[in-house]
Amino acid sequence: MEKNNVIEVENLKKNFIVKQKEKGFKGSLKSIFKPKLKVVKAVNNISFNVEEGEMLAFIGPNGAGKSTTIKMLTGILYPDSGRIKVLNIDPTKQRKKLAYKIGTVFGQKEQLWMHLTPYDNFKFFGAIYDLSKEETEKRIEEINSLFDLSKFINTPVRNLSLGQRILCEIAASLIHKPRILFLDEPTIGLDPVVKESIRKLIKKMNKEYKTTIFLTSHDISDIEKLCKRVIIVNNGKIVLDDQLINLKKQEGTLEEIISKIYKGEKTK
């Protein structure tokens, strides 16, 4: 059977130019007139493919280039060079077209209107994705039963707990039935019970709708419980791209194995 790649990345690069500032009054003056610039290779020649229906963990230490990569895949950042195809669309050229087909959840950034209820928010997102009123209502009902939101669907978002809020963030990002769901640290700051229910949901999405899941997380159990394949990046480069099972064959807990790789120690 031919493989159906939904994400294709080839030789992707992104540099940031960082202005460095020396301490003190003199340093401030100097940085105004003659700034010291340094190039940081945030993403340095990355290539990988993701097949339809895969659940992929894209992990690495802080500042490794995960977020930069995910942001380039979703059209937020422009790459310096390299080729990206997400669902056969180039995010840099057809950002809007791609946006109809993907969903995104950034754990640390809110997309919802805080003073509106989840229900009104979903309706707004329905309009953003050009769904008719009837379609939107139908989708909200589906999502409601899938996520079990009925208890707080009519409470303004600002009055919800963090867990309920993230649940609604994920729900809102699914209103248009995306084929790929990008999750950037979705479980950050949540208690174990909420984490568990979010993981269940993500699994369900993947199973029922064949949604491809692209996940970054620092939470090892997120990875362990959700993903079959792991890509580890460090210093802007892919240092490992393998099945989780293979990784687990090594000595120690998964956490120990991963932190060894982060530190750059040789693995068998």
């Binding site: 960082v18 202005k19 460095q20 500032k21 945030a42 942001k71 937020i76 950042l77």
Partner: peptide, 11 residues
């Protein structure tokens, strides 16, 4: 746009 990534660093 750099999405607030690495805008500043101090020596």
């Amino acid at each position: 746009y750099s999405s607030s990534n690495l805008m500043f660093s101090k020596i």
